[in-house]
Nucleic acid binder design. Structure first.
Lengths: 205, 205, 205, 205
DNA sequence: TCGTAAGCGAGACGGTACGTCGAGTCTTGCT
DNA sequence: AGCAAGACTCGACGTACCGTCTCGCTTACGA
């Protein structure tokens, strides 16, 4: 059972089982309305109507709109583990695929809403934070492998470095909302690996 | 006149002048409630009550919650222009001071909420985006000076590099909500300038 | 179904049924507030608060304050049909009972307020006028029986005569607001029946 | 000084005297708006705008909308003293002229509003009641003369009889709001004088 | 096979906030 | 001190959703 899903598969109980059909219809309606209306304009009433479901059926499964949106969010794809043998290759492949996800799913629209809510909602924070940690693991693993290979200095802070790598992407998702141009990934990876200072070998002489 | 402020300095008009006291009380109440509740849970009614003011007094000055929040936000301090003669010095001083601001004002609590709303609220986006652009200018200027001095490669993308620098700070503000430890600034600046790969001169010969 | 009542007896519908308890609490609160404040100072918000009910519960049943007040008003007792065999007896019994009602229910306090509003409120007028017409029918019927019996001239205008009979009572309700002394009824009925001029048989000779 | 007017002519005071021009402009605007909008839709703000006057100028003179309307009302014409030598003649002339006033001024529209308000507003009642008493005096005087002439029984209650005479007119003003047809006056006066029972001399002998 | 417990859509429940308007009061500069 | 103008606080408007609560009705399990 996932962190965010409710215990629908727990101890077989008497009575009518919950409708899996309704469950998915609700999540689908949620994602659809998130795309068209955004998080704060999303109403549980609207989700219920679109899903052809009673409000109680939603509240029976999720304690609040935030939790509902969070489960919808958790269904969206994330980073995939990639091992090409080099950090440049790993990061390039992972980030390119991630940008593709950001550009083709509601993920980019939902992420800032949840982060914005997280700050004032400890309950959400409790669910959201581990999820976020989990979702960046592929990059952490790639960094660990790179350190083992000697490609990267061994004294780096993994979390901080992951922040450095995700930073430019997240900055754009949060502050511009526009499509992420995959062309920025090359320069970003290059800067992270080798810095922005001039390189001796690039200089004549 | 700023983008978000109203034309308070315009020609003295007939009738009772608007109360400057009420104006500031409203902005103060807005900031206080943004910290505790966030943007979407902020109600104009709540602001009015806390400021000891009628709702009409708020709507007379700001056409919507968005405009009100933007003016309150724009009162918070931001990056200061710094010129120490080196990029390391400039970034160190600027970011250290910025982290101090994040740790001592409601800025860190408000920023994610606004970013989360921005994605679905074009009206907010229209006011917020230029404000954000303006607020990162000191770093852009420092980078420009560094390029002129030859400290930094001349082919860098200024915006992308600014994203790279702010990234780790913003990531922590948005996804952890905790105090920012100023100790991360050194490694961040170092990584941005020289990358995370091993350095030839650090290696034993 | 009455003009003012809603179709509560219609086919049982889906969903939670409307609370009969809330319905009566709202009407009671309406009458109480009409007495203390009058129609124009009556607020739906005030009724909701006093009835311990949400505003929506009121608007779900009555489309406007006018309809609500009309249903509350229509619950108050009115003239009762009486047939004693003589017009003097009918009027005496009916009016005595009506004065008792005026002196013991909120009717006397509510009536002027509604009449005052009626003049400028077509919606109210549309509901109120038929109700008023209906409420004076017992007197009209008594007059009709009296005409049949030859007790009263056959060329009288029933409505005008009813106005003549109610006139003194209504004048006092509207312009003094005090209790109506039942002792005026004898002289009123006498004057209506036999006029105020001296009577031949009362004169000597 | 009238009962309802404020002390505009009281002890000559320091400062600028109140503008008599403004005073009349306000009353005119009030009557004009009463005709077009009715009492409840009349706003002090609207009166001020139409009179080209500040709201404070109105509130300086009248404590509320009701008082303002009352003074406007008191400017409207009322019953005129008439002495034709017979009660039938007096009442005929007076009532015919009064009905003409009701049909051609806002009086009929204002009267119910004030009566409706009177019931819940003791302050208004204090001003309104003596005015009403004063306005019916011509009928009382005509009755007194008729008693002296022996046209009317000497044991009648003057007030009650006045109520009987005004009753049908007031009933129609309050409960129908329509024009008063002057043709009802003949039957009303006849009924008051001689009753509605069959007359011996009308019967065949 | 059938009772029953839980789920179902529907919709009413008491609340809260919306953005607007008018009430009655207060505060300018001017007359 | 009065004036026009227009700010002030307050509170009601009728609507939309909140999250909860009945309704009458399935539905599928286990006695």
């Amino acid at each position: 059972m996932s962190i965010v899903t409710s215990n629908s598969e727990s101890t077989a109980s008497a009575g009518r089982p919950r409708s899996e059909e309704a469950h998915q219809a609700i999540l689908d309606a949620t994602l659809a309305l998130l795309v068209t209306s955004g998080f704060s304009a999303l109403t549980v009433e609207g989700v219920a109507t679109r899903a052809g479901v009673g409000k109680a059926t939603i509240y029976r499964r999720w304690p609040s709109k935030v939790h509902l949106v969070m489960e919808a969010f958790s269904q969206l794809p994330g980073l995939k583990e990639v091992d090409t043998g080099s950090l440049v290759g790993d990061l390039g492949k992972m980030l390119r695929s991630y940008v593709e996800i950001l550009n083709s799913t509601p993920l980019a629209a939902i992420l800032p809403s949840l982060a914005g809510e997280r700050a004032h909602n400890p309950e959400l924070s409790k669910l959201f934070d581990p999820l976020l940690k989990e979702r960046r693991q592929p990059v952490i693993h790639a960094l660990e492998r790179a350190v083992e290979r000697g490609e990267v200095r061994s004294d780096i802070d993994y979390d901080l470095t992951a922040d450095l790598i995700f930073g430019p992407i997240v900055m754009r998702v949060f502050f511009t909302g526009s499509r992420i141009n995959p062309k920025i990934l090359g320069p970003v990876i290059d800067a992270v690996l080798r810095g922005i200072t001039p390189r001796p070998r690039d200089q004549p002489g």
